Computed example of a mutant assay.
Amino acid sequence: MLDHVHPDVLGSLLARHPTQKVYLDAFAEHVRLELEHLRTSRSRVYPRSLLTVPRGWDELIAARGDDFIEWMRPFLENESGLHDLLFMPEDFPLMRSLDAVEDLVPGAKAGVVARALKASMSTNMRMGALYDLATEVVGPGADDARELALAEANNDKKLFEFANGLQRNGQGEWLLEQIERDLAGHTSGRVARGLVLAGFLVPSAENDEWWAAHQAPPATGWLAEVHAAAYAEYRRYGYVQHWARKYRNDVDDVAAFSAHALLVAGADDRLLVGEERPEADEIKGWPWRRRLHWSVGWKDVRAAMKKREDAFEKTFLATEPPLQNQAPRRQ
């Protein structure tokens, strides 16, 4: 019967019937064969499956953990060339496998990400999702991955994505520690990077307190300009938070729609991290006019985010290149 079941369904069958050995054996063999295919294939294409298999991993690990580690060992030990297969641009066919092995070997995922990042830096292709992963992984190797991602950031867009990713993944404390390390650096560039990262913090009581303790610029001249620009970025998003709350809470549509226009004027991708963006259940409880306005106006919010992102890409450390046709510094 299993011969007529699509392989990607086997994980769901195992999750639904965890005591059925026939499903366990079938899913285990499917995973083993796909990992072996990916390891030995010479073609640089997506594997044949494991792209949409969200279930079955816990049951597989519980029953066949030792076997699974052996199947994954070539990837964990960074066999030559595997980073190209593991991390296709913007997609990660084996991320489910790495998530599963993390339960057995804490820090394994971070170690793979760090090694893949290091290897990718010698190529001409920037695998953007790898840098996103650096802000997500935890455990041994996470610091290495983040330091590599941060060192590669050569414009403010990349610094913003790095800071935003850390906050999105609950790593705000690590970000604050990195900011402090940068501010204690021995070069003006390192200090400026810390200031720019601080400007990308999501306003909160803790981050307000941090900025209150750093109101004075660390130096005069250029660093004072960077400090002012970074604080302006932080305050700008504080205004976005204010207008977002007013839009959601004001009973008067005219006042709310005006607040929305001001929200759009200052929006950036931090809107996807904090609590400013309403959840679907909240939106369902709004009057129909507010629901319709939010739905139609979301494209304006996204356009504003894109415009802000494009502006960040043209600067580095809150500074425009000295020549109009000169790109931000590359390391």
Rank of each mutant, 00 (worst) to 15 (best):
V5Q: 11
H6E: 13
G11N: 05
S12I: 06
L13Q: 09
P18C: 02
L24T: 06
E29D: 14
R32I: 01
R32P: 05
E34S: 13
E34T: 15
H37Q: 11
L38S: 10
L38Y: 01
R39Q: 09
R39C: 11
S41L: 06
Y46P: 03
Y46S: 13
L51S: 03
V53D: 04
V53Y: 00
P54L: 05
P54V: 14
G56D: 00
D58M: 00
I61Q: 03
A63D: 04
D66W: 07
F68H: 06
W71K: 05
L76A: 01
N78S: 15
L82N: 05
P93S: 08
P93G: 07
R96M: 09
D99M: 12
D99R: 14
V101Y: 02
V105I: 15
G107P: 02
G107T: 01
V112R: 00
A119S: 11
Y131A: 04
D132T: 14
T135D: 03
D144N: 01
R146T: 04
A149C: 07
A153T: 03
K157P: 00
L166F: 03
E173F: 03
Q178M: 15
E180C: 07
D182F: 15
D182V: 03
T187M: 14
R190D: 10
R190V: 15
R190M: 15
V191L: 09
V196Q: 02
L197F: 03
A198G: 12
S204K: 13
E206L: 15
H214S: 07
Q215E: 15
A216T: 15
A219G: 11
G221E: 07
E225Y: 01
A230M: 09
A230L: 08
Y231V: 11
A232C: 11
A232F: 02
G238S: 13
Y239G: 06
V240I: 13
R245N: 12
R248G: 08
D253M: 12
A259W: 08
L263N: 09
L263F: 05
G266Y: 08
A267H: 06
A267D: 06
A267N: 04
R270C: 09
L271A: 02
G274A: 08
I283L: 08
W286M: 08
P287A: 06
P287V: 13
R291N: 13
S295P: 02
G297T: 10
W298E: 13
A303L: 11
M305R: 04
K307E: 10
E313N: 10
T315V: 04
T319N: 09
P322T: 08
P322L: 11
L323W: 02
Q324L: 15
Q331D: 09
